[in-house]
């Protein structure tokens, strides 16, 4: 099982990625203090993108790839995965 995020910026992506790895850092929900250690990726990361039908990806995510700061998001995701591994 992996978790795929669609958060709109690096900060919120990092919070949700931490939530499903080390536990909810905002202590706002049921996963506060619970380390699930799940592999987590963002929908705009290449590892996920290459597994989706290009036509469907373009229709559902294509515009958001332009809208979002995907490099910053990817860096945040890599950081969380590194720290939780």
């Amino acid at each position: 099982m992996i978790v795929v995020l669609g958060s709109p910026d690096a900060d919120s992506a990092e919070i949700y990625a931490e939530t499903v790895t080390k536990g909810d850092p905002s202590y706002a929900g049921a996963l506060a203090g619970i380390e699930l250690g799940l592999p987590v990726y963002h929908i705009t990361e290449p590892e996920i993108k290459e597994q989706v039908d290009p036509e469907v990806y373009q229709e559902q995510v294509g515009l958001m790839e332009i809208a979002l700061e995907v490099d910053k998001i990817a860096a945040a995701m890599r950081k969380v995965r590194r720290l939780s591994s």
Binding site: S7, P8, D9, D11, S12, I15, Y16, T19, S26, A28, L63, M64, I66, A67, L68
Partner: peptide, 16 residues
């Protein structure tokens, strides 16, 4: 609370 900057994301989407 991890909910991001909602208007900014909307504006980036419109601009895109």
């Amino acid at each position: 609370a991890g909910s991001g900057n909602v208007p900014r994301t909307n504006y980036r989407t419109i601009g895109s």
